[in-house]
Simulated scan of single mutants.
Amino acid sequence: MKRLIISHGDKGGVGKSIYAMLAVDYLLSKGLDVAVVEGDIQIGDVAKRYDGVDGVTSFNVDLDKSGRDAENSIAVLFKHIEKMGCENVVINAPANAKKALDTNAELILPVAQDLEFEVCVAWMVGIEEASAEMSEKSIICEMADRKIAVVNRHESEYDADFAWFTQPQYKKAWEKSGGMIGEIPELASRVAVVLKSHKNRSLASLAGVDSPLMSVERQVFKNWLKKSWASAVAPLIDGGE
């Protein structure tokens, strides 16, 4: 099965990069090779983390475009994918990605289908109501084979802060349209800081026996990784498997 996984959300700071990393690591854990598409070329944090990691290839495509430039970027994206023969592709979308992804959904989906990809979209839920409203308007979410809305927990944020919970009509509408719901649990701040200091290692390697983390940090991270995969990643990637 070939998968095109898009970490979307259209807002900055909602967890698109961390979701993309979780998806890459989950696929690696299944023994699959992965191509990482870094759509935010200004930051490029996902591609940088997996630079030199076995089983991962990466390339940059500027998806922070609109109009004809966005269409050209999508064309470049799929030329790379087709030439490389990628079977598992993870796209880390930039903020404001609707300019490229949603506007060109009617180009992306048919080409992906021609290349025999399932299109799987993770919509990262922002705190504000606008995030919930935009999820209803996302054309690529509407057209995707599978979609999941993911809340990225932070230590100081609670359910009441999310419009998806304070105004449940958004959550109900998402589920009625066939969307799944998941979450990335909060990670202890001390471990999160350590994670950021080890940028050229896969997430799974930080939970493994050769991890540079202390034993207790490693176990905290391992538990977080398993919970994140189970709630937010496996349902989208595995589907009915």
Rank of each mutant, 00 (worst) to 15 (best):
M1Y: 10
L4S: 00
S7D: 09
H8V: 00
G13L: 11
V14L: 07
L22D: 08
A23F: 07
L28E: 01
K30M: 10
L32S: 08
D33L: 12
V34N: 11
A35R: 11
E38G: 03
G39E: 07
D40N: 14
A47N: 02
Y50R: 05
G52K: 06
S58L: 01
V61N: 02
D69P: 05
D69W: 01
I74F: 04
F78W: 15
F78H: 01
K79R: 14
M84H: 00
I91G: 04
N92C: 02
K98F: 03
K99T: 13
A100I: 05
A100E: 06
D102E: 14
T103W: 06
T103F: 13
A105M: 03
V119W: 11
A122V: 07
E129A: 04
E129N: 01
A130W: 10
S131L: 07
S131M: 09
A132V: 09
I139R: 15
A144K: 13
A144Y: 11
V150A: 05
E157K: 15
D159C: 11
D161V: 02
F162H: 13
A163R: 00
F165E: 15
T166Y: 01
T166R: 12
P168H: 00
Q169T: 07
Q169K: 14
K171W: 07
K176W: 03
S177Y: 02
G178A: 03
P185S: 11
E186W: 08
L187P: 08
S197F: 02
N200R: 11
S202E: 00
S205G: 04
S211E: 00
L213I: 12
M214D: 13
V216T: 10
R218Y: 06
V220Y: 03
F221M: 07
F221H: 04
F221W: 03
W224Q: 03
K226N: 08
K227M: 04
P235Y: 07
L236E: 05
D238K: 10
D238R: 12
E241L: 14
